[in-house]
Simulated assay, not measured.
Amino acid sequence: MNKECEITRDLIPLYIDHISSDASRDYVEEHVRIVLNAKNPKRYAIAYHTSH
């Protein structure tokens, strides 16, 4: 697991409980977007565009 994934894993409980800072929330969301895009670009594109 890389450093960014470890940081994100540490932040997820705070994110879920809505007690993370705005910067941490943005970091988690961006990291998840990047990971999803890398694993399945087509599925990510569909999910991203239907949520906006």
Rank of each mutant, 00 (worst) to 15 (best):
residue 34 I to Q: 14
residue 24 S to K: 12
residue 7 I to V: 09
residue 52 H to L: 06
residue 15 Y to H: 03
residue 40 N to F: 12
residue 1 M to P: 12
residue 23 A to V: 15
residue 17 D to N: 11
residue 4 E to N: 07
residue 29 E to N: 04
residue 12 I to Q: 03
residue 25 R to H: 14
residue 41 P to W: 04
residue 40 N to K: 08
residue 25 R to E: 12
residue 27 Y to S: 04
residue 4 E to K: 09
residue 43 R to N: 05
residue 18 H to P: 05
residue 26 D to V: 05
residue 43 R to M: 08
residue 21 S to T: 09
residue 34 I to F: 09
residue 52 H to V: 07
residue 39 K to M: 11
residue 47 A to M: 11
residue 1 M to T: 10
residue 41 P to Q: 06
residue 27 Y to K: 08
residue 19 I to G: 00
residue 14 L to F: 14
residue 26 D to C: 02
residue 43 R to I: 15
residue 5 C to P: 04
residue 3 K to M: 14
residue 41 P to H: 13
residue 16 I to E: 00
residue 37 N to C: 13
residue 1 M to F: 11
residue 9 R to Y: 15
residue 52 H to M: 07
residue 52 H to S: 06
residue 45 A to K: 09
residue 29 E to L: 06
residue 21 S to Y: 01
residue 32 V to D: 02
residue 40 N to Y: 05
residue 21 S to I: 01
residue 33 R to Y: 08
residue 25 R to Q: 10
residue 30 E to S: 09
residue 23 A to N: 13
residue 12 I to N: 04
residue 25 R to V: 02
residue 25 R to C: 11
residue 26 D to L: 03
residue 46 I to D: 11
residue 14 L to E: 04
residue 50 T to I: 08
residue 19 I to C: 03
residue 12 I to A: 10
residue 42 K to N: 13
residue 6 E to F: 03
residue 50 T to M: 14
residue 38 A to H: 11
residue 25 R to N: 14
residue 47 A to I: 06
residue 9 R to T: 13
residue 20 S to Y: 02
residue 3 K to G: 09
residue 19 I to D: 00
residue 31 H to K: 02
residue 37 N to K: 14
residue 27 Y to R: 13
residue 26 D to P: 00
residue 24 S to V: 01
residue 46 I to H: 01
residue 35 V to F: 13
residue 6 E to T: 09
residue 20 S to E: 02
residue 49 H to C: 03
residue 24 S to C: 10
residue 26 D to T: 06
residue 23 A to Y: 15
residue 26 D to E: 00
residue 15 Y to Q: 01
residue 18 H to Y: 04
residue 15 Y to S: 01
residue 24 S to L: 04
residue 35 V to D: 02
residue 2 N to P: 12
residue 18 H to T: 03
residue 20 S to R: 00
residue 42 K to L: 12
residue 51 S to W: 07
residue 27 Y to M: 10
residue 42 K to A: 14
residue 43 R to L: 10
residue 14 L to W: 15
residue 46 I to K: 06
residue 40 N to L: 13
residue 39 K to H: 11
residue 43 R to F: 03
residue 48 Y to A: 15
residue 2 N to G: 13
residue 41 P to G: 05
residue 37 N to D: 12
residue 39 K to T: 07
residue 29 E to T: 12
residue 27 Y to L: 12
residue 33 R to D: 05
residue 50 T to Q: 01
residue 47 A to L: 12
residue 41 P to E: 08
residue 31 H to T: 01
residue 1 M to Q: 03
residue 32 V to Q: 10
residue 10 D to C: 00
residue 22 D to Q: 07
residue 18 H to F: 06
residue 41 P to M: 03
residue 30 E to I: 04
residue 44 Y to W: 07
residue 42 K to T: 13
residue 26 D to G: 07
residue 8 T to I: 07
residue 4 E to T: 03
residue 41 P to K: 13
residue 45 A to D: 12
residue 37 N to Q: 14
residue 15 Y to D: 00
residue 2 N to D: 15
residue 36 L to D: 13
residue 50 T to C: 06
residue 48 Y to L: 14
residue 3 K to N: 15
residue 7 I to D: 04
residue 27 Y to V: 06
residue 27 Y to G: 11
residue 5 C to R: 07
residue 47 A to D: 11
residue 29 E to D: 11
residue 16 I to M: 02
residue 1 M to H: 07
residue 28 V to E: 01
